[in-house]
Amino acid sequence: MSRYIIRRIFSVIPTLIGVTFVIFMFQRLIPGDPAVAMLGEHATEESVERLREQFGLNRPLFLDREALAEGDINGFFDSQYVRYMKRLLVLDMGESIHRRIPVLETLKIRFPATIELAFFAMFIAIIIGIPIGIISAANRNTPIDSISMVGSLVGVSMPIFWLGLMEIMLFAVMLQWLPAGGRISVGVEIESITNLYLVDSILTANWVGFKDASQHIILPAIALATIPMGIIARMTRSSMLDVLQEDYIRTAKAKGLGHSLVLFRHALKNASLPVVTIVGLQMGTLLAGAVLTETIFSWPGIGRWVYDGILGRDYPIVQGGTLVIAFVFIGVNFFVDIMYAFLDPRIRYN
């Protein structure tokens, strides 16, 4: 088992490095000079140059051939990329070009907001999607099955930003049951420990805060959960149907096990393997979808922040935000691989 985990860790490393590389490349390739963007178009050439010096923007991207030709091997490696990697290793992500706030500081506040939303949405997607899939499979080719499958296909087809808007219109504007946006009401305080408001409010037994935070998260989470919910339900169904055809299901029935034990004990564990994989992959959809939900619900997470960063050519923000999102995605899928080994002894013992 530990060998399996170590092997997985090693196979993740190239992907991680590749990701940092792509992020680096993207920032540098986006047209427009950040120094100019920062100082405004009327800045003097001199001040622009000084700024570029300060941020290392005047260094070559990867390797400095001219320095090498002069025999300066240190200078050869002193490039934007090497500096970037060095800084990454000590978690120095620089500061936002426009606002001059360290990226790490902002991340500490905004990242938990996105994570809280994404995980909460995934939680909803799982606790609704999996039972729907099981019920459909158990009632194959009945009206229940057709209805839930068409229903989950509608979920998969949902433009979530539109769904979010409809939710706001219905629940916030017309019925006024829930707030239209934000993470917490003005005046409600939650002591920050993890910066996940739901967790923090439970930890500090702050029930007013918990209620308020729940009310704020529910609408964006539902919007975000719709697509993964549909996908998980469909995956659960098809994988249950596959498993229910297996010989060992017949063996289990021949032993005298009842319908529900066969379904939930013998079939579900086998069927959960592909479902777990899809959950991991859907985490990507969720994190990506956060850009949209955060826009609509004014959720102070990293999706919207990175989006603004991209448009404003704020390299450090784009770099920090994308990196964190990609790493979370890779991390979740790494975790899924480990889960896989827990669920399937054939992988564990190989």
């Binding site: 792509v22 990507g284 959809t285 990506a288 956060a290 999706g303 989006y307 995605f329």
Partner: peptide, 14 residues
């Protein structure tokens, strides 16, 4: 794999 590690929309936006 590397391309897939980026959330779709963000990559498209970039």
């Amino acid at each position: 794999d590397i391309i897939l590690s980026f959330p779709g929309y963000l990559l498209a936006i970039a």
